[in-house]
Design a protein around this nucleic acid. Structure first.
Lengths: 218, 218
DNA sequence: CCAGTTACGCTACGACTCGTAGCGAAAGCG
DNA sequence: CGCTTTCGCTACGAGTCGTAGCGTAACTGG
């Protein structure tokens, strides 16, 4: 939602500030239609069979219009799925364990959606040989979700569940570590092992994360 | 190495047991050359620009020969990278923490290789819309590596570092959980966050895994 | 040794996607 | 009203796909 608005605004302020402010403006409806069509095509066709020509016809625009705004399939799909991630929130459930379980279940629900499943791994795979794409993913998706970890830790510290950090650099490293552990475990469970991220799994995962391997029972 | 032999043997015992035992046998050199060429092409071109025609010329065989053995790009790449995973081992380093750190560093080294980086995520992405491929990945790669977790746990139990399991079903669930946490965290760190899996990170990760979030310091 | 069977290399093919170029029309701005 | 940019449309060369057909090579059973 506001990601699109922000993106368009930044694109405009970037391209029109430098060269042009006159002429016919780009259609915002076309942007939304293209991104919607991209998600619909991902659901029906999956990443590999998705073509920009198909996206264009679904969106009711010409193929050239798509190419004017996105340099290729990867960039388009990153923007299309990045919007999905903004739905994640961290409702206060009263304890660190409950907060983690809540956000993990949300993340799992997101990974149930076929457009997210097929697109996420594909764009990361592409990014291994495409540095600009890697940066785009980092900014649009990865960094954007670290807020959840930071917020959860701040809450837990306020509750006295976690100690206050002294060294800010070490605190940042730990936040990155926890982010990789949580997101990585859920993604691996859902997309690689292909088994359900249900409440039972989430409870056991949270127990390990908070108490270590010894508390893996139950 | 012996994966190839096993694969060829199973293919032969499957197709020749049913229909044919006569005629010109398939060239084992061609199999090896094709898989080597696939890995080389992955390094140079990455997943998306890799074509089976290119693989065929690199391997010195005809394109039709490749298609006779593999139904498509995904299947070929799965077999090509599955061989890499057989190099992983679990040397006994004396303690559970040291064992984990050792295998994680090995896994990280594997993910440094460009052919593994670009292929792993790509085939998983493809598998989201291709059930036979999903099964092939599960058998050739995922299940194959769970042995490391089982072996590490058995060693830790022998050392008295972990309690003996009573319920075998719960033990299996826990092993799956730990596998997803370890593999997921390392993959996410290396391929999504794109930051190094160095000794410092591995030490802090192992501390969290064994002792829980409270022991994330140092 | 020879017929039968299968794999191999090679060539060619229609179907498809890619990304771009050129055109006239539409939509805002000064 | 001119100027500028975007839009939809069509068409294009390049490249890939997966398959088919052919003659030849390799191995087996009679």
């Amino acid at each position: 939602m506001h990601l699109l608005a922000g993106m368009v605004a930044s694109m405009c302020s970037h391209s029109r500030r430098t060269t042009a402010r006159t002429g016919r403006p780009r259609s915002a409806e076309a942007d939304a239609a293209i991104l919607d069509a991209t998600r619909a095509a991902l659901v029906e066709l999956g990443w590999s069979k998705l073509t920009l020509g198909d996206v264009a016809s679904r969106a009711g625009v010409a193929k050239t219009t798509v190419y004017r705004r996105w340099s290729g399939k990867s960039e388009l799909v990153v923007d299309a799925v990045a919007e999905l991630f903004d739905e994640l929130e961290l409702p206060d459930r009263g304890s660190l364990a409950a907060d983690i379980e809540g956000v993990v279940l949300q993340f799992a629900a997101l990974l149930e959606r076929p457009e997210a499943r097929t697109a996420l791994m594909a764009v990361v795979a592409e990014s291994t040989t495409d540095e600009p794409l890697r940066e785009r993913i980092r900014v649009s998706i990865v960094e954007r979700q670290k807020r959840l970890v930071l917020e959860g830790r701040a809450r837990a510290q306020a509750r006295g569940e976690l100690p206050e950090e002294t060294d800010p650099a070490a605190a940042a490293r730990t936040a990155d570590l926890i982010f990789d552990v949580i997101a990585g475990a859920v993604v691996h469970r859902a997309l690689v092992s292909c088994e359900p991220v249900d409440e039972d799994w989430v409870r056991r995962f949270t127990a390990v994360l908070l108490g270590g391997l010894g508390s893996a029972e139950s």
